[in-house]
């Protein structure tokens, strides 16, 4: 193998990637497909993306490195850097460091049912895991994808979610608010857990979304019978270096960039309810 793909010898130095294509997902969210030779990332990991002269932010990997096709990052334009990245046109250059962090434990989930619960933009870090699970469908029992978001207009990867629905996957989408043009579910994502078909004793759950949503969801999954050690969350904290040296992403005894972002619920649960930790 040539130089380590994650750039361990020059961890602070971005490499140049190029936008292959750009797709609008919602009013403030875009997906960029990148040409980034040799740089990818497993589902659950993240890359540091740099917009020239503006800055760098962590963005989770939304593609499946095992499949052919470009590296995909989905970016919500909410700050100077994310706005600049989301505005990049095909052919434009950006800096990329990574991949960093832990992965969704798909191998551990094999043999049992897989319950994937996403909230809002939290579907983006799970997309790669869903695609991988579908590519190796036979390794899992039932697969349920439960997705809650704000309104029908905020649904990410809309056509792809429709496509998943036609495969051997139970897909349920719910929104917090809707008008009468929406005929799908309205209500919180935890409501979908009770309706989903899975054998809790052998199920593994992946959860990603705003932290409040993950706390409610993990609690509901546990109430539904999934062991806390088989519930995995993807946490978020401020990150600058991504290599465990800037100290910003500390979460108790963990560094989210190194020990996360995907972490086991039984290990983080006591800390999730400590304010301002």
């Amino acid at each position: 193998m040539a130089a380590r793909a994650d750039g361990a010898s020059a961890p602070f130095l971005p490499r140049i990637a190029r936008v292959r294509s750009r797709r609008r997902e919602t009013h403030d969210t875009w997906s960029l497909a990148l040409d980034a030779a040799g740089m990818a990332g497993e589902p659950g990991q993240f890359n540091m993306l740099y917009a020239f002269g503006i800055g760098e932010i962590p963005v989770s990997v939304s593609s499946d490195a095992a499949a052919t096709g470009p590296l995909v990052h989905t970016i919500r334009a909410v700050g100077a850097v994310s706005e600049a990245l989301a505005a990049l046109r095909p052919g434009a250059a950006l800096g990329l460091r990574g991949p960093f962090g832990t992965t969704w434990p798909l191998a551990e989930a094999a043999g049992g049912d897989l319950v994937i619960v996403a909230g809002g933009l939290g579907l983006a870090p799970l997309r790669g895991a869903i695609r991988r699970a579908l590519a190796e469908r036979g390794r899992y029992g039932r697969i349920a994808v439960l997705y809650g978001t704000r309104s029908p207009a905020d649904i990410l990867y809309r056509s792809e979610v429709e496509r998943w629905r036609r495969l051997d996957v139970e897909v349920a989408v719910t929104v917090d608010h809707a008008d009468q043009r929406w005929h799908g579910n309205v209500g919180v994502v935890t409501k979908l857990i009770g309706r989903a078909g899975f054998a809790a004793a052998h199920a593994t759950a992946f959860v990603c979304g705003p932290e409040i949503m993950m706390r409610f969801t993990a609690s509901a999954l546990e109430a539904a019978g999934i062991a806390p050690a088989r519930i995995h969350l993807s946490l978020e904290r401020n990150m600058k270096c991504a290599v465990g040296q800037c100290g910003r992403c500390q979460f108790g005894g963990s560094l989210i960039c190194r020990d996360g972002a995907v972490m086991r619920y039984d290990r983080v649960r006591p800390l999730l309810t400590i304010r301002e930790l």
Binding site: D176, V188, G209, P210, M213
Partner: peptide, 16 residues
């Protein structure tokens, strides 16, 4: 009630 409170928090809303 719990579900309504969670909905009211608008947790997926844009941060600004």
């Amino acid at each position: 009630l719990h579900a309504a409170q969670l909905q009211m928090l608008d947790v997926y809303g844009s941060p600004r």
